[in-house]
């Protein structure tokens, strides 16, 4: 059993989606040790966060809503910042990296709430939020093994 499959086993209800998402990332599939796995998942989260932010900034142009503006700016800035911070702490402080990996998920969570309060239904944004929250969870589980 590979490292990423073992990680997905810990993801509970998200196991199936975890396998689906990570199988598409050859580097993650081939990770040789846990530190490498952590690094690759955090980089994946950072990449996905930047993609989501770009989509949200485009959405701001077609849907003039303060909730989308909030998602595209402060909330996803926070998520991207957390993934970056976690990456930078991997070698120095496992506990801080673990904390940052977890709070990266606050951005999509709060974004979902803001959109819901504004009664905005956008399946693409919801899917992006869900996947990034999942990656944050996986990064948290992986970094939990760090010394």
């Amino acid at each position: 059993i590979t490292l990423y499959e073992s990680l997905c086993d810990q993801a509970g209800q998200d196991k199936a989606r975890c396998l689906e998402v990570l199988q598409a990332e050859p580097q993650i599939v081939g990770a040789k040790d846990n530190v490498e796995l952590c690094k690759l998942i955090l980089e994946f989260g950072l990449k996905k966060g930047l993609e989501a932010q770009r989509f949200l900034k485009d959405a701001m142009m077609t849907t003039p809503s303060p909730a989308i503006v909030q998602c595209a700016t402060s909330l996803y800035d926070g998520t991207i910042g957390s993934f970056k911070s976690s990456l930078s702490e991997l070698a120095e402080d496992g506990q801080t990296a673990n904390y940052d990996a977890k709070v990266a998920g606050d951005g999509p969570t709060t974004c979902d709430i803001a959109l819901s309060n504004a009664k905005i239904v956008n399946p693409t944004i919801s899917a992006l939020n869900k996947d990034i929250l999942l990656i944050s969870k996986l990064a948290f589980l992986a970094t939990d093994k760090l010394p």
């Binding site: 977890k102 869900k130 999942l134 944050s136 969870k137």
Partner: peptide, 8 residues
């Protein structure tokens, strides 16, 4: 949502 419990 089990997912949210991780972030809250």
């Amino acid at each position: 949502q089990d997912e949210n419990s991780m972030a809250i």
